[in-house]
C-alpha cells in the first residue's frame, strides 16, 4: 500500500463513517472496510473507476465534486477524505469548508508546489514544472489550483481550521528528517488531518 495511505489509515477509527471524495477504483475504501469495518461511501466521476468500485463491493456515487456536496448532511460522516484531488477542483476553499461541514475530521493529501525541484525547474527553465508526480503540460493538466504547504497553512489559519496532524512525504511516500525541518521545501506531498 502507498505509504501516504498507510499513514492516514491510522487516522480512521474502526466502524466509523468514511466519505472518500474522488475515491478512484475504491481500493482504499475496500481496504478500510476489510480492516476497520467502516461504513464506506465514495464519490467519483470516471466510469471505469466507478465500475471497479462496484466490482469491489464499495458504495460509489457518480457525482461531480465541482457541483457541490449540498446533498450530504451536516456531520453525517466521521472522516471525509480528499486525496490528490484538491488541486483539480474549481473552488478548493469552498470544498474544504464543505468537507468540514459534512465530516467531523477531514484528511487532505495534495502535491506541494513549493518542492525545491519544482522551484528550480521554474527558475532555471522558465517553464511550468513537469515531473514524475505531476506529469502534465500546463494546457492538459487536470490540476488547476496548485498550492504550497505554506498556502494551505494560511488557508487553515484564516478559516480557523484546526490542523490535528500534518505529515509530508516524497514521491515514494517516504518521510525524512529534512522534510520535517523544511516541509515546504522538501515535501512533495502534504498530508493534513484537520477539523473545525
Amino acid at each position: 500500500m502507498r505509504a501516504d495511505l498507510s499513514i492516514i489509515k491510522d487516522w480512521i477509527e474502526p466502524q466509523s463513517r468514511v466519505l472518500d471524495l474522488g475515491c478512484g477504483d475504491g481500493s482504499f475504501l475496500a481496504l478500510l472496510k476489510e480492516e476497520k469495518q467502516i461504513f464506506d461511501c465514495g464519490l467519483d466521476l470516471d466510469a471505469e473507476n466507478i465500475n471497479k468500485c462496484l466490482l469491489a463491493g464499495v458504495n460509489v456515487i457518480e457525482q461531480d465534486l465541482d457541483k457541490g456536496l449540498a446533498n450530504f448532511s451536516d456531520n453525517s460522516f466521521d472522516s471525509v477524505l480528499l486525496t490528490q484531488t484538491l488541486q483539480a477542483v474549481q473552488k478548493p476553499d469552498v470544498l474544504v469548508d464543505e468537507m468540514l461541514r459534512i465530516g467531523e475530521k477531514c484528511i487532505i493529501i495534495f502535491p506541494n508546489f513549493a518542492y525545491w525541484r519544482y522551484r528550480l525547474y521554474l527558475v532555471s527553465k522558465g517553464r511550468m514544472p513537469v515531473s514524475k508526480s505531476i506529469p502534465f503540460e500546463w494546457y492538459d493538466t487536470p490540476n488547476i489550483h496548485f498550492c504550497t504547504i505554506k498556502d494551505f497553512d494560511f488557508l487553515c489559519s484564516t478559516k480557523n481550521i484546526k490542523v490535528l496532524n500534518r505529515t509530508v512525504v516524497d514521491d515514494k511516500h517516504q518521510n525524512s528528517s529534512l522534510m520535517n525541518i523544511y516541509p515546504n521545501l522538501f515535501g512533495i506531498n502534504a498530508i493534513y488531518h484537520i477539523s473545525r
Binding site: R17, F39, I61
Partner: peptide, 13 residues
C-alpha cells in the same frame, strides 16, 4: 440517492 444518504443507507449511483 440523497434521501438514502440522509437516512445513512448504503447506496451506489
Amino acid at each position: 440517492v440523497n434521501t438514502l444518504l440522509k437516512a445513512k443507507r448504503q447506496v451506489s449511483y
